[in-house]
Simulated assay, not measured.
Amino acid sequence: MGHPRPGKHQEKSEDTMAYGVASAIRVIVLAGEVETVVLGEGVTAPGDPLLRRVVDELDAGAAASPFLRSPRLAERIELLPPGSPAAALGAAPIGAAAQPRAGSLPTDSVPTDQKAVFHG
C-alpha cells in the first residue's frame, strides 16, 4: 500500500475545507439571520475550485432539503477583493469594545450590520 498521490490528498483537503466553510455558512445564516456572508483571502486564496466546491456543498444541501433551499445560501456569498484588510479593520472595533477604556464608547454602541466575514 503506497501513499496517495499528492493531487488526491490536496483534493481531499479541499473537499474537507469546502464542507467546513459551507457548514459554517449554514450555521451563521440560519442562526444569525445574516443577509450576506463575505469570504476573505483565507478562504478564497486557493481559488475558484475551492469556492466552486463550497457552492456545490450548499447547492447539494438545498437540493436535499426545502429548509436549506429557502434561504438561498449560495446566493448570499460575496468575496473580498484580494489584499483587502477587512478582517483586520473589522476586528478592530470588536477588540476595542471588549477592552473599554476611559472615554471610550460602551460596548452596546458599537455598530453592527448583517454581514459575516470569514478571513483566514
Rank of each mutant, 00 (worst) to 15 (best):
D48P: 02
A63M: 11
R26C: 05
P49A: 14
V38W: 05
P81M: 00
E75P: 00
A31L: 13
D48A: 15
G120Q: 00
V43Y: 03
E41Q: 14
M1T: 12
P49G: 10
G120R: 10
G120C: 10
A63D: 12
G2Y: 03
Q99E: 11
P85Q: 02
R53C: 00
T36S: 10
E14F: 03
G20I: 08
V38C: 15
H119Q: 13
L39C: 04
L58W: 03
R5V: 05
L39E: 01
E41K: 11
A86N: 12
P71V: 00
I25W: 01
A18K: 05
F118E: 07
G20V: 10
I25F: 02
R69G: 04
K12R: 08
V55Q: 02
V110L: 03
P4E: 09
I25S: 07
L79A: 06
P49Q: 12
V117S: 01
K115V: 14
P4Q: 07
L30F: 08
A62M: 08
S13C: 12
A60F: 04
L51C: 05
A31R: 14
V117I: 11
L50R: 04
A24N: 07
A64T: 03
P4F: 01
A96K: 03
L68H: 04
G7R: 10
E57T: 06
H9Q: 15
L68A: 02
K8Q: 14
E35N: 15
V55L: 05
Q99A: 13
H3F: 14
G103A: 01
G95Q: 04
T112A: 13
R53V: 02
L73M: 02
D113M: 14
P85G: 03
P4R: 06
G90F: 08
G47V: 01
R5D: 04
L50G: 02
L79D: 03
K8P: 02
G83I: 14
L50Y: 04
R53L: 08
A97H: 00
L105G: 01
A92G: 12
L89S: 10
E33A: 15
Q10C: 07
E75F: 04
P6F: 09
V110E: 06
G83V: 13
E41M: 14
R76E: 06
